[in-house]
Design a binder for these strands. Sequence first.
DNA 1: CGACGATTTGAATAGGATCAATGGGAGTGG
DNA 2: CCACTCCCATTGATCCTATTCAAATCGTCG
Lengths: 229, 229
Amino acid sequence: MRPRDVPVVRELALFVGMEEANFATLVNAAYLQRFPPQVQLITEGDSPDFLYVIVEGSIEVFARSNRRRTTIDIFRPVATFVLAAVLMDAPYLMSGQTLERSRLLMIPAEDIRLMMEQDAEFARAIVRELATRDRSMIKALKNQKLRTGIERLANYILREHEEQGSHGSLTLCIDKQTLAALLGMTPESLSRAFATLAPYGVDVHGPDIRLSKLDDLERLAKPNTLIDG
Amino acid sequence: MRPRDVPVVRELALFVGMEEANFATLVNAAYLQRFPPQVQLITEGDSPDFLYVIVEGSIEVFARSNRRRTTIDIFRPVATFVLAAVLMDAPYLMSGQTLERSRLLMIPAEDIRLMMEQDAEFARAIVRELATRDRSMIKALKNQKLRTGIERLANYILREHEEQGSHGSLTLCIDKQTLAALLGMTPESLSRAFATLAPYGVDVHGPDIRLSKLDDLERLAKPNTLIDG
DNA sequence: CGACGATTTGAATAGGATCAATGGGAGTGG
DNA sequence: CCACTCCCATTGATCCTATTCAAATCGTCG
């Protein structure tokens, strides 16, 4: 790992409280690597070799069963993924691939497990990370079970709109196929869902969306901090 | 908490590695309490007061949004719930109620958080518990997004069948309304799903189910250790 | 220009939900 | 012991949501 990348990683919530020596140990064992888009990094069912930290780019984690495929989550900097599998030394439950050119820190799973035993502050940071992930998965499950596809889309739009500054417009940062999979629907259904939202002031032009009737859209979406928080 | 209940709790994965003094501290602050059926213990949105440990009975955790309601999970001894909310001191994401007469150990949330700072072995046990929960939620999300209602039911039946000894029959230990909510469908749909499974050797008599064509049922269900494990 | 992949649109179908009505115990009170 | 009631479960009819399969359209890039 290049020296100039170290400070960025050091500031991650997961590492910030660690003793310097322990952090150095972890980093020495780790690889910081670049990947082109559409590279599959992990495969569901495999044993975890590394904990991944996204330094740059974005990662889609997805799962298959029967002949269906769905997106579980999309990660951006700075986040880790497959932490639970690494800690339990249990098979990955999902596959993961880069969506764009990405830089990832790969820390050998065994080092993570050892370090958790050695560094109590690291263990506590892991607890916070895991608890956050757990809650995030509960929210995703609620989103899926308690809302229709249109409602999920409406809430996704509102959330992106807010994260992008609430200026009345937003730009989708993933392509529509991936968005459809994330929202638990087919690309065709997503396309129709967008059309259904037109009367609610949702104007779609490629990846750009303008929102002209925010109130109407919110009335439809009924955002809920216990799902979208 | 009664002295004779202490050993049971002491053996929980969460506590078994703790120093004796620390365990005593936690237990002294805790309440072991009985509840009748259908008592709502926690409400989504509330701040976490306690970590709950089910010593006896069963608990349904569920969530609402719009005017819908769904079951997230059902817990039996010996398990904890709302651990993530307690650790993050963040609002419960789900409500919880007893399904039957139950005994619960209630440990004040603040004591859990303090003890995690003090007892490194406890922190590690929490990590394992959280990682297991996280994986369980991922599986639930995959189950919901990658399977139809009938497939979810078929897999639920196969899993119960196995847990009850694989003797060609099983007994539902929750009523069908609750099962329907757990599987993400209405009671009507569940009833029809059972009917659909009849040609696959699923004979339902009230809560009792006999399975006469296990192979056919498995071919339909396509159980997957990365979902049902 | 031409090809390819992504998106949209159309038509038909499937999976579930909703609303309504019926059947079937378990428990209650006469 | 027998109605009676209530709640759960089932069944029927219909509607809605979303998927599937197919075709058209759009944009981008070589």
